[in-house]
Design a protein around this nucleic acid. Sequence first.
DNA 1: CGTGTAAGGAATTCTGACACG
DNA 2: CGTGTAAGGAATTCTGACACG
Lengths: 111, 111
Amino acid sequence: MVILLAADSSYKDKKVITIGIVSELTGLTERQIRYYEERKLVFPYRTPGGSRRYSFADVELLVEIANKIEDGVQTYEIRQEMVKQKKRNEAEEHKKMIQGQINAHFGIRKK
Amino acid sequence: MVILLAADSSYKDKKVITIGIVSELTGLTERQIRYYEERKLVFPYRTPGGSRRYSFADVELLVEIANKIEDGVQTYEIRQEMVKQKKRNEAEEHKKMIQGQINAHFGIRKK
DNA sequence: CGTGTAAGGAATTCTGACACG
DNA sequence: CGTGTAAGGAATTCTGACACG
């Protein structure tokens, strides 16, 4: 029997980090970080005052993006990959939801 | 039987949150947050420019502090508790370290 | 295409102090 | 003791643009 307690995603997904800190954390310039947003690769939260707030998940994503760009991948292509991945995830979600409804109707049998 | 506890402390302890965000997260005013630092209850990182950066652990600590103050506990008393707790932790650490050295010398037997 | 930079403005944060109690 | 506030300054962030290539 295995009991696994998942990583605390609450911290990872909270958008609380300013662009200056993200710059330090990733080694990217603020210019680069803003540009990747312009290309719709990252979506920081915006405060009422207009400044950007990133999550740790965003920070990790930014590093991945930067690596791909270093490898010669264009932002447009990276965007395409992300859209595709998102669709796969949604399909998976949908599948799980349907299964959940089936279970709700016929009862859940677990090995 | 295996019990795995992940608790990603890497995110929790990184000092990356500005005082404004901490204020939103905790509901405390910036004045309160700065005062608790003055009373040596929290220790944010300082950027070269002089501004404070807090971790999620700090945020949680601040909430606990605020609760105690609401209960009428004075900052000085809270400080005393923290110092005592720290000493207990260090004693525990020391004990573990000693045991580690013993194990290193005589071999580790695990049940 | 991806990034650097100077420009001017706006939002954020800092400290020390006076105030109340 | 714990917190509010006005004050002036410094650090941070924002946008739009010009530049290179």
